[in-house]
């Protein structure tokens, strides 16, 4: 297990290098002078000249990458073109907000997906199973932004049950209750696709477990159905579910980006959206980097969890 963990952790180094390299290249792939792009069109000639020297634009490409990477590691993510402040001061709170939203949608996806999947899988072909699986088919293809709009229309505008914009009320700024209220609709919208996938997976792995040879064995030896369900079937569907959770985090984060725009959630997604429209390159670079790194880290944690459940790897 330890050697696996070390191997797995070492394996993310080349991935992170690749990711950072890709993000770094964005500046060079857009035609024009990188220094101008980083400082914005309004920059003075002196500032551009100074930045050109800082970036080492006269030096070879890979050395430039090295300089950029060193800056990143020092925590210097550059300055926002549109806001004229350091990128990290803007982005870190936004990253946290995005992670809150992703966490909320992960909770919705897991609780909803597992519950529906288990109920459906325990009684296949029951009416509950048929109905939920019918909807799950659509769920996997729901355009997240559309669902966000529909939910907002029904629950915020028509019924007025839940807030439609932002992360908290101006009056009760920051209270947990207020954030939770604001979190519900965006979480559901962002979770929809993963929830459907999760419900289907849970159902099918539960059915597979029930049809497996070992369940047949335990039944043949008179083990109670309770033990078969709770001890054996549940334990064996855990790995595929955890695996899928890891795969779905990407989709949840992607969903969050859309949902943030619809619900004006002050996260990385909204920020990226306005940064792209405002051509604020340093912000775009850092935002992309943040999301990609969190994604890689979440997957790492997930892989280690899955491995710790698998007896073949544990020993």
């Amino acid at each position: 297990m330890l050697s696996y963990a070390i191997k797995r952790i070492l394996a993310i180094i080349p991935i992170l290098m690749g990711v950072s390299f890709l993000v770094f290249s964005i500046v060079y792939l857009i035609p024009g002078d990188p220094a101008v792009k980083i400082l914005g069109q309004a920059a003075t000639d002196e500032a551009v000249a100074e930045l050109r020297k800082d970036l080492g634009l006269d030096k070879p490409f890979f050395i430039q990458y090295g300089i950029w990477l060193a800056n990143m590691l020092k925590g210097d993510l550059g300055t926002s073109i549109t806001m004229r402040v350091s990128v990290d001061s803007v982005l870190i709170p936004k990253l946290i907000n995005t992670l809150i939203l992703t966490g909320g949608s992960l909770a919705v996806c897991l609780i909803g997906g597992l519950l529906i999947g288990l109920l459906a899988g325990l009684k296949p072909y029951s009416w509950f199973d048929r109905i939920s699986m019918f909807f799950a088919q659509f769920g996997a293809n729901v355009p997240v932004f559309w669902l966000a709009i529909v939910l907002m229309w029904i629950f915020s505008i028509k019924l007025g049950w839940l807030p439609a914009f932002g992360m908290y009320d101006m009056r009760t700024e920051g209270s947990t209750w207020s954030i939770l209220q604001h979190l519900i609709l965006p979480s559901i919208a962002a979770a929809s696709v993963s929830l459907a996938v999760m419900a289907r997976l849970t159902r099918s792995s539960l059915i597979d477990a029930f049809n497996s040879d070992y369940v047949k064995t335990f039944r043949a030896y008179g083990i109670s159905e309770k033990n078969i369900v709770f001890k054996h079937a549940f334990r064996n569907i855990l790995s595929p579910i955890l695996n899928m959770t890891g795969l779905q985090v990407g989709s949840l984060m992607g969903g969050a980006l859309f949902v943030e725009v619809v619900f004006s959630w002050p996260g990385l997604g909204s920020q990226l959206y306005s940064s792209i429209t405002g051509q604020d390159l340093p912000m775009v670079q850092a935002g992309v980097l943040f999301i990609a790194i969190s994604f890689v880290l979440v997957n790492l944690i997930n892989d280690l969890l899955v491995a710790s459940l698998n007896p073949r790897l544990r020993h």
């Binding site: 080349p14 991935i15 690749g18 984060m253 775009v284 999301i291 990609a292």
Partner: peptide
């Protein structure tokens, strides 16, 4: 496979956004 790993480490939407930014 390693190159694909790098592409996999972006949520799909994010990769699309990078392309659009470029």
């Amino acid at each position: 496979m390693r190159l694909l790993d790098v592409l996999f480490s972006f949520p799909t939407v994010l990769l699309a956004i990078v392309v659009s930014a470029i």
